[in-house]
């Protein structure tokens, strides 16, 4: 479980960073999205991973900290999802404005001669 999640985070982060460094604005925004997925998974995993556990209480058992999934990372990840979604949407708007004003989808607003 940990290995799969770690691999998923690693692959998402790697692809995200590679795309973030590309010259087209569309690649940048996809890169940022992939990075934010990776970060969301990462935050989620800081609460500890368990398979098949009940969220709070097992039937017939007294509540204990051992049976209790930490709710704080879940709250954090929810907030982080909302915020990164909103800022990505904002980035999209600015990206379109830049495309309209400069006539190019290069991040610098003009093609590089090389």
């Amino acid at each position: 479980m940990e290995t799969i999640l770690a691999l998923a985070i690693g692959v998402l982060t790697g692809s995200g960073i590679w795309l973030l460094l590309r010259p087209r604005t569309f690649q940048v925004i996809i890169g940022l999205s992939l990075l934010s997925y990776a970060v969301n998974l990462f935050i989620f995993s800081t609460g500890g991973l368990r398979t098949g556990a009940a969220p709070i209480l097992e039937r017939g058992e007294a509540g204990s900290l051992a049976q209790y999934a930490d709710p704080v990372p879940q709250a954090l990840v929810l907030t982080a999802i909302v915020i990164s979604f909103a800022t990505t949407a904002l980035f999209l708007v600015v990206m379109l404005a830049a495309r309209g004003l400069t006539g190019s989808d290069h991040v610098d607003g003009k093609e590089q001669d090389s």
Binding site: F42, L76, F91, V94, G109
Partner: peptide, 25 residues
């Protein structure tokens, strides 16, 4: 402004992700 703003926005979005990684660690 839009060209500078695009860079500013991209850098700050990436920064926010670093912030989140740090906080969750």
């Amino acid at each position: 402004r839009v060209r500078a703003g695009l860079h500013y926005l991209a850098i700050n979005l990436a920064t926010s992700l670093l912030f989140l990684i740090g906080v969750s660690m």
